[in-house]
Nucleic acid binder design. Structure first.
Length: 434
RNA sequence: GGAGGGGUGGCAGAGUGGUCGAAUGCGGCGGUCUUGAAAACCGUUAGGGCGCAAGCCCUCGGGGGUUCGAAUCCCUCCCCCUCCGCCA
């Protein structure tokens, strides 16, 4: 959620910033400002009347105390009419406020000044590349083929169970997935100082709203229903990312400044309906309805939001460095960023079997956009005022695509997979294959 | 799922229709005293909104209602606790 005051004070600037994203949203600014004016006028007026009623009611109480009942009755009649006016005014205020909130909640965050302006992914900027792409003396196979040959993932039976886009890992395939999760969690906990949490894999809609998933992207979520009770449909949602529960941990709290920074790491499966994306890269494990992810979340002082973003990206990159997987880090342009983000870096790992880079991490500073939506504040040690912290999220990293890259990069001519050194203790093997 | 009890400020805990945004205690912060600390004493300490400001309004789990007036009465939803049933 944007700060209304900023919209009020610098509407042209806000319009320009919004237009630099995907565009279109800037046209709501005039409506928004009009609703804001109307809203404040109604508040001022109805509060004046409320003050009057409050005073009069106290007087009535005093008259009753003095047993001057007739005078009290006369006053009551007048105050009753006042009450009616207040009520109708507040009904109108409520409507105006609902429309105002609706508009506010659908406006995306404003891009940070350091974000390149661009319409789509073509405007993104590669900020660094790491690692040498391996030279193969044979044709590197795609992960799908490797998985099938080695019996790591049973795509057909996964689809049989839950439909296409759901994976059944088997044998060493399942063990490798588990080893990766463990490796990632340990890396971030032991070496990067994050606190491990294990959240619910479903959240209420208030949490989805808090991180900016709702209301705009409700069509992308899996809604849960309890048994046969249709009333309960939509009370809970399968999480699309651990960001949904973890970023909301301290919602509606006022933290002490000394509590900051807070750094959490969490493993969770992620569920994405991917409505409208049917047929787009649906083969294999690159785009699926359920995948595992280790997520990083930070809640930090606004003065340090951007240094914390840089260190978060470094933490995520370390994953690929340790595994020896070549990658590049991309600064997203205004047109390619997510709804809540003010600045985002994507990390893309090289997948030789695909002949392309795969996005395995997306690290964003959402500034106070989410904190506003979830009423997350901290008390400033300087002036005692309550302020909104910056909330950051980053994948550290997504598993399915990391898995793809690992298999494709580490494959041998005979089809075996040589496991990267740091992962061996977790897997309990150096090589997968016959 | 059934029966009962309960949600008040950072915490504990009063308040059952009026001057109550809320006693008191603890904790926190500031001060006095002290070489320093403790103790004692004094003061201070919820959130949100509107307003240039003075100030005003709202909030006692959420929403709705009764009333001139609601923390207090009614309805409803949510959450927590105890017991029973079922169950990983």
């Amino acid at each position: 959620m944007l700060d209304v005051r900023v919209v009020r004070e610098r509407p042209d600037w806000v319009r320009e910033r919004l237009a630099s994203r995907h565009g279109g949203d800037e046209r709501f600014i005039d409506d928004l400002l009009e609703l804001d004016r109307r809203r404040r006028a109604l508040i001022a007026e109805s509060e004046g009347l409320q003050a009057e009623r409050k005073r009069a009611s106290k007087e009535i109480g005093a008259l009753m105390g003095q047993k001057r009942f007739e005078e009290a009755e006369t006053r009551k009649q007048a105050v009753r009419e006042l009450g009616d006016r207040i009520e109708s005014m507040q009904r109108e205020l409520k409507e105006v406020e609902a429309r105002f909130e609706e508009l506010m909640s659908r406006l995306p965050n404003l891009p940070h000044e350091s974000v390149p302006v661009g319409a789509d992914a073509d405007g993104n900027v590669v900020v660094r590349e790491w690692g040498e792409r391996r030279q193969f003396d044979f044709e590197p196979r795609p992960h799908t083929e490797l998985c099938e040959r080695l019996g790591l993932v049973d795509f057909a039976r996964g689809a049989k169970l839950a439909g296409s886009g759901f994976l059944l890992y088997t044998g060493w395939g399942a063990r490798l997935e588990r080893a990766l999760i463990q490796f990632l969690l340990d890396l971030h906990v032991r070496e990067h100082g994050y606190t491990e949490v294990s959240p619910p894999f479903v959240v209420g809609r208030h949490c989805m709203f808090g991180v900016g998933q709702f209301p705009k992207f409700e069509d992308q979520a899996y809604a849960v229903q309890e048994g046969l009770d249709a009333e309960t449909l939509g009370r809970l949602y399968l999480i699309p990312t651990a960001e949904a529960p973890v970023a909301n941990i301290h919602r509606e709290e006022i933290l002490a400044e000394a509590d900051l920074p807070i750094r959490y790491v969490a493993y969770s499966p992620c569920f994405r309906a991917e409505a409208g994306a049917a047929g787009v890269g649906t083969r294999g494990m690159i785009r699926v309805h359920q995948f595992d992810k280790v997520e990083l979340i930070k809640v930090v002082h606004p003065d340090h939001g951007y240094e914390e973003l840089e260190s978060m990206v470094a933490d995520a990159e370390r994953v690929l460095q340790r595994l020896g997987l070549p990658y590049r880090t991309v600064l997203l342009c205004t047109g390619d960023m997510g709804f809540a983000a003010a600045k985002t870096y994507d990390i893309e790992v090289w997948a030789p079997g695909q002949g392309q880079f795969l996005e395995v991490s997306s690290c964003s500073n959402c500034e106070d956009f989410q904190a506003r939506r979830m009423a997350l504040r901290f008390k400033s040690a300087v002036d005692g005022k309550n302020r909104f912290p910056h909330v950051l999220n980053g994948s550290g990293t997504a598993l399915a695509r990391l898995y793809v890259a690992l298999l494709e990069n580490c494959q041998q001519a005979d089809g075996r997979i040589v496991i990267p050194e740091p992962l061996r203790p977790y897997l309990g093997a150096e090589v997968i294959g016959p």
